[in-house]
């Protein structure tokens, strides 16, 4: 990790308790500008819970979540509502796809633009020129994002009618519509076939390179993780058990044990 890179996200000793269950146990993690970082670990390790803490869905029991937007002052995310976190420039996708099924593909992305636009109720009723311009701009930029993830042809379909892989890509487009500088992807390749996975791999690299969006992804597909991410963080039973480059992780005995242990069970 080069020290001259700007640190975007800094999580220190994050702990999350559900009653007696410690789902996340003092995890420390950093994401730097330009990174495609990965968070891996066996089922139930606490990865999704970790995401939920960062994005404000859960309020962590202990620890600090610090966001360092470039050129702005540092913000502590603990206890912020999810919409505030998104406004700060940190967007996410969900492991169990959470689209708006009865809205069209384009409208799903347009929802992402909500927090970057501001016409209110009265303006909507009067529908002045500025509101119409803003609407058109929302449509255009959303359509542009659909082109980017390869869903432009489906713009006017209901999102529930999309195939699984396309729904995952739509979630990414929707998250990108909120203009994030850091994107959290929760198992973006889950349920995808090898072809779709390799398309996704390219898409993630493209987002990282072209949009200057740093990425932190949870993924079980080791090939994808090893191909594109650096650094990799490994969790097991809520604890971080390893971090490092793909090579370091591959040879780490603890990681091998965590994964092999899981397989033999």
């Amino acid at each position: 990790m080069a020290e001259n890179k700007h640190k975007l996200l800094e999580v220190k000793g994050l702990t999350m308790d559900f009653g007696g269950l410690r789902a996340v146990d003092s995890v420390t993690l950093e994401v730097y500008e330009g990174d495609i970082a990965a968070l891996i670990g066996p089922n139930g390790a606490g990865k999704t819970t970790f995401f939920n803490c960062i994005t404000g869905i859960y309020n962590p029991s202990k620890g600090d979540i610090l966001l360092h937007p470039k050129g702005l002052k540092t913000r502590r995310l603990n206890g912020l509502k999810p919409n505030k976190v998104t406004e700060m420039g940190l967007a996410r996708t969900f492991q169990n796809i959470r689209l708006f099924p009865d809205m069209t593909v384009l409208e799903n992305v347009m929802i992402g633009r909500h927090c970057r636009t501001n016409s209110g109720i009265f303006k909507a009723i009067i529908r002045s020129k500025s509101v119409r311009d803003e609407e058109q701009q929302i449509v255009e930029s959303s359509y542009h994002l659909l082109e980017k993830v390869g869903l432009a042809d489906f713009a006017n379909e209901f999102s529930k009618n999309l195939p699984y892989g396309a729904q995952r890509r739509l979630e990414i487009a929707r998250a990108m519509a909120t203009d994030p500088f850091l994107l959290l992807l929760d198992e973006p390749a889950a349920g995808m076939n090898p072809q779709e996975t390799s398309d996704l791999e390219q898409l993630i690299c493209k987002i990282s390179a072209e949009e200057q969006i740093a990425i932190l992804l949870i993924e079980h597909d080791m090939k994808l993780v090893m191909n594109i991410s650096d650094p990799i963080y490994v969790m097991e039973y809520g604890k971080k058990i390893a971090e490092g480059s793909p090579e370091e992780i591959k040879d780490n005995p603890k990681v091998v044990e965590a994964y092999l242990g899981e397989e033999t069970e």
């Binding site: 994005t55 406004e87 992402g112």
Partner: peptide, 14 residues
């Protein structure tokens, strides 16, 4: 409409 469809996704979209 988004809130009706999925409140969690809606709040996560800002």
């Amino acid at each position: 409409i988004a809130m009706r469809e999925d409140e969690i996704a809606c709040v996560a979209m800002g």
